[in-house]
Design a protein around this nucleic acid. Structure first.
Lengths: 335, 335
DNA sequence: TTGTAAGCGTTATCAT
DNA sequence: ATGATAACGCTTACAA
């Protein structure tokens, strides 16, 4: 019989009521004599008592648990965002755990269900397949990160994907490129769309022809980037520059270009979007569009804290960070 | 007043007792008439009832939550392991969440504390700083992944780091290399040690001189790998081959070699350990020592399930997978 | 400043 | 096959 000690055991040992013990534990020490606090504290130590957060949650209806749901934990973009989230939330006493759906819609749903049943206080999510109504039906505080189309009912923090794409294309255009390839990710449907839209708008505005063979859609990983590049290079008339929807894809594309014996940027320019850490570490270092990852995370946490506090019913807000050109070595004039 | 419906509400609506509702919910339908199940089910649907896992956990002392605690979520090695863990644990009804400590000892501790207070059923951990006694004091089912020194009280799943290093060095030695550099990670103290030990033993056995300037210790990321390589190349007499403690470091080293204008493997051989996905995607593709990542995860889950079941008190076991040489394009004879 | 007692929403025990 | 009732360990009015 080695039951875990409870506040009752502590109370007995300290010769007080469990109410007092509870007061000490919750840091509600305002109304407890200093000496009593000490007595309780030593009782806690001697018994090796651990606060049972489950019981506490049942009573308070708060768990202080936040879920960060993302599709691809291997993309360094997310850990960078997570740091911003964690630094802010942990300061307020929340713990942030990751749920990695691995681009699997069913797993995403499962995690959502889990967060709801276990009464997580909130979730931050970059959605794979889940939509506005499903999130609403979950009845859990939610802030979206990244995606910003089709979610009218939620706070959203992200970056201006449309603007980022314009920025990238303008850079390549200014260098003299007129035949620009686009590598899109297969999964992340929403921002992908806004990038495609931006691409088409840009070409139209500049009076360039829209050649659909220059647009390739591949899985959202390095391998996808390689495949896409190979496909583009096999074209009768390959592009002189390629914009990838994120840095991971761009790095894959860069590798494929190397393997094909091309010199970057002399024979081919390649750009990414995100400015993940690895972008500065490729050869040549990758020109990309920088997104303020840490800041995105911090702002998302800020929105969440509002929801968890007074502003629970405020109208949905959105904060889209502007992106900036990070010019490095992978872009130059066309050959 | 929009309280969440409870089983009591469901019971009322269905005209049964809450006990019966509970029976239906827990799938303990054995002793409930089919027709009753239906009535309860429709009541649940109509009310939009959600099971309160917190209340359930308080009663049953089980949460069905597992924590996977790792130091560096950006290393693709871990997501691969996680897949093995998840596939197995989810089948048994457990949900697995990630805790990313970012190499931060304090954060690791915080997550551990969280798992304990919230009565997570178990944790799988690749420890950063936490030691055997601290884990034991947490009184929570624990299986270690990766590290296997100094944890006598726990089940451990990992790979034979010592053997992996021997395998790698033998490969380089057989190719003719006699001056072999070693890039170690700064943080992960334990396996790093066994690699160093293995390195020293190998040199001794082969009668090679141990030149400490050939051993470099750097942060466990691509940037670290680059720095290490630069340092090794700046030596008066640089190595003809370099073994990195993992693929991330090796990839960084490869990039630095490229940047220095060296051709791999003609002028310099580079090897990694792990065989993460990206290893096959570099130029040239990386020769490395393959660890069965998914299998490691699966075996860890297997151990855990034993602990959660009958075998709770079994003597600590360890399963070290053997590693295999994955010969690709980054190694060749010395110039 | 401290204590009493009533929940929080389940599940487990024991009847029926 | 179903129900009444007592926990589970904590927080929080309300009382003293």
């Amino acid at each position: 019989m080695k039951r875990r000690p409870t506040i009752i055991d502590v109370a007995k040992k300290a010769g007080v009521s469990k109410t007092t013990v509870s007061r000490v534990i919750t840091g509600d020490g305002a109304n407890v004599r200093e000496e009593t606090i000490q007595r309780v504290q030593t009782a806690i130590d001697e018994l090796g008592y651990t606060h049972n957060a489950v019981a506490s949650s049942l009573r308070t209806d708060r768990t202080n648990l936040i879920m960060l749901s993302i599709p691809d934990i291997t993309n360094p973009f997310w850990p960078a965002v997570a740091r911003g989230v964690q630094d802010r939330m942990e300061r307020e006493g929340y713990a942030v755990v990751f749920a990695n759906s691995d681009w699997d819609a069913q797993r995403e749903k499962m995690f959502l269900e889990m967060a709801r049943r276990n009464r997580f206080d909130a979730i931050l999510i970059n959605p794979v397949r889940v939509n506005n109504d499903e999130l609403k039906a979950a009845h859990i505080h939610t802030v979206l990160i990244g995606s910003h189309e089709g979610f009218p009912d939620f706070d959203i923090v992200g970056s201006n994907s449309y603007g980022a794409t314009q920025l990238a294309l303008a850079h390549l255009y200014d260098l003299g490129h007129r035949r620009i390839g686009l590598i899109r990710g297969e999964r992340q449907s929403r921002p992908g769309h806004s990038r495609l839209q931006s691409y088409e708008d840009f070409l139209r505005e500049k009076g360039l022809v829209l050649d659909s063979s220059l647009i390739v859609r591949v899985p959202f990983d390095e391998m996808g980037g390689r495949q896409a590049m190979e496909q583009l290079l096999s074209l009768a008339e390959p592009p002189t520059a390629v914009l990838a929807a994120n840095d991971i894809l761009a790095i894959g594309a860069l590798q494929a270009a190397h393997q094909a014996g091309l010199t970057v940027p002399d024979q081919l320019s390649i750009m990414g979007i995100d400015d993940i850490f690895a972008a500065s570490a490729t050869t040549p270092p990758l020109t990309t569009i920088a997104k303020p990852q840490y800041e995105i995370g911090r702002q998302a946490a800020e929105f969440l804290l509002d929801r968890l506090g007074e502003q629970a019913t405020a109208v949905p807000r959105r904060h889209l960070f502007n992106c900036t050109l990070q010019q490095r070595g992978s872009t130059g004039p066309p050959p």
